[in-house]
Structures are given as C-alpha cells and as structure tokens.
C-alpha cells in the first residue's frame, strides 16, 4: 500500500516547540490522530507537513512529495484547517468558498459533491459574513474551503475546539464520509472521545512520539488495574486517597475517582470497583510515566 504521509526523522530546533526524531507513517484513507498536551509540538508538525515552515533536519513526504523541495506541487494535494479560524471574516460564506476554489484553479461546481453534505447545512447563510457565523458553522465553512480543491490529504488542527457536542458529532460523521471517498485525514484533538474515533493515534509529548497504535491496542496496553471509587465528598476522598502510600495515582473523573495502586488494591477505599480504562486514562498514564 502506498503511504500518503511518511515522516522520517523530522527535527525542528526551535526553543519552545522542538520536535525530536519524529517518525511515523500514515496510510491512504486512514484517519490518523495526533494527541498530546498543549505545547507538545502538534501544530509545529502540522506546519512542517503542510510546508509552511521547514524542519531543521530530517525529511518528510506527503503523497510522495517532499515537503521541503516539492512544496509548490504539494500544496495542490493537501487541505489544511489551522487551529485558529483563518477564513476571510469580511467575505461572505459563498465568497470564501469561491475564493478558495479560484486560487486552486478549480470551481465550486467541480468538486461540490465532496462538500455538499457539509455545505448544505450552512447554505441558508451563504450571504452572511464569515465573521458573523457561530462556532459550529465556522468549522463547517472552514472544512468546505479546505476540501474544495479535492485534496488527497486533509490536515485538521483541533477542528472541533469550542464546538458543542452535537456539532462535534456531525463533524466526525463528515470525516468518516470523507474517508470513504478515499481522503486521508490527519487530525489533532483535545477531546479523548474523538481520539477513540481515529483509526490510529500518535501520542506526542515534548516533541517526541510516545506510541502509534490503534485506540483498541492503546487501551489493551494499559499496564495496571484501574479502579473507580466515590463518596459523598469526592474532593475530600481524593485528598485522603493521595496520602495512601499504596496509591500510585489518583484523579477525579466525573462522578468518580480513578485510582491506580502500586500493588494490591486497598479495599478500605469506599465503593472501590475495578473498571476498564478509557483512552483518557491511558493518555494520562502514559504522559505521567
């Protein structure tokens, strides 16, 4: 199978946002998630792969094109939705879309089938200025603009931050549909329920990739038993549990505490119950150890 994105030893030395020996491959038609704490280097990586900045050393190809030397050709093959809303706020919905189609030498009509499910939802507002749209609608317009030239690979940097759960769900359904059209998607997100929807996830911290796995394998790889507990006052329980020398880590997680013990579980902790870890538990565990 031909690899759409191949990064080999891509290194960026840049005080705050260094990437160190980052290597991974993304397969055609994959939804590939980049997950990591703030400042881990995700946005830097997106910028290198979209040819907006160059790596200090190393090499990366996207759709067979070198990001450093073939960048002119590369830009026709990729769509990029940066984390910050970056459409023209003073142009209308329709004008933004036409603008992006024009600069890529295509027309809205030619690739309309690719965006129609998304665009139909914002079409009633097509004369509204982009700056006046709600959060969810902005994301839909930005995605439409990133897709209008039918890119082979789509890069999405935190596309759903600040978007409500219903719109997020719709957004991910669109991504799944694009995948069936053969579009490869590289996406970063702080939402762990979205991480679960990726085919594979790269966990990144301090500019290094900790693991590249399917969500199922990441969960199966959780090295300890995980327990939940709760009481009338979870905050006081948390402070109590943390004093227990048998406790390796303890965190609030919604209505419950999530606890990992060094050895055997301490049965005196109230309402203790073994549970299966979520992607979020795995993420927190990997980052902290």
């Amino acid at each position: 199978m031909k690899d759409d994105v191949t990064i080999i030893n891509c290194q960026l030395i840049n005080k705050a946002q260094a990437l160190k020996d980052v290597s991974f491959e993304v397969k055609k038609g994959e939804i590939f998630g980049l997950i990591g704490p703030d400042g881990a280097g995700k946005t830097t990586l997106f910028r290198i792969l979209t040819s907006l900045i160059s790596a200090d050393s190393g090499q990366a190809t996207v759709d067979g094109l070198d990001v450093a030397t073939d960048f002119r050709e590369l830009r026709k093959h990729i769509g990029y939705m940066p984390g910050r809303f970056s459409l023209y706020q003073d142009l209308s919905v329709e004008e933004n879309l036409q603008f992006f189609a024009t600069i890529f030498n295509t027309t809205v009509e030619e690739n309309y089938y690719l965006i129609q499910d998304i665009y139909k939802q914002i079409e009633p507002f097509k004369r509204r200025r982009a700056g006046k749209l709600s959060g969810g609608m902005k994301q839909k317009l930005a995605l439409s603009c990133a897709l209008i030239h039918k890119p082979v690979v789509l890069f999405l940097d935190e596309p759903t931050t600040g978007v409500d759960p219903v719109s997020r769900k719709e957004f991910w359904e669109m991504l799944k549909k694009l995948k069936t059209e053969g579009v490869t998607i590289v996406v970063s997100t702080p939402y762990m329920d979205e991480a679960q929807l990726c085919d594979r996830i790269a966990l990144i911290q301090h500019g290094k990739i900790l693991s590249v796995e399917t969500p199922e394998k990441i969960i199966a790889g959780f090295p300890k038993k995980l327990y939940q507990a709760h009481s009338e006052n979870n905050y006081l329980l948390l402070l109590e549990v943390r004093k227990n020398p048998e406790v390796k880590s303890a965190f609030m997680s919604g209505e419950y505490l999530h606890i990992v013990f060094n050895g055997e579980a301490d049965e005196t902790v109230p309402n203790l119950k073994e549970i299966g870890p979520s992607i979020e538990d795995c993420f927190v565990y990997l980052i902290e150890n």
């Binding site: 704490p37 703030d38 935190e158 600040g162 702080p190 609030m252 993420f283 902290e288």
Partner: peptide, 23 residues
Amino acid sequence: EPTGGVDPIARRQFWEMIYEAAE
C-alpha cells in the same frame, strides 16, 4: 468554557481547583 482546547491532564487538575474552591 474555562477548559476549551486544554489537554486532559490540565483539565483534571483544573477541576481539582474547582472542587477546592467549592469546598
């Protein structure tokens, strides 16, 4: 929306601060 775009570890720590304040 105090935690928009924040990673899970920072979010959990933030919620501990909220509980502390409520306490």
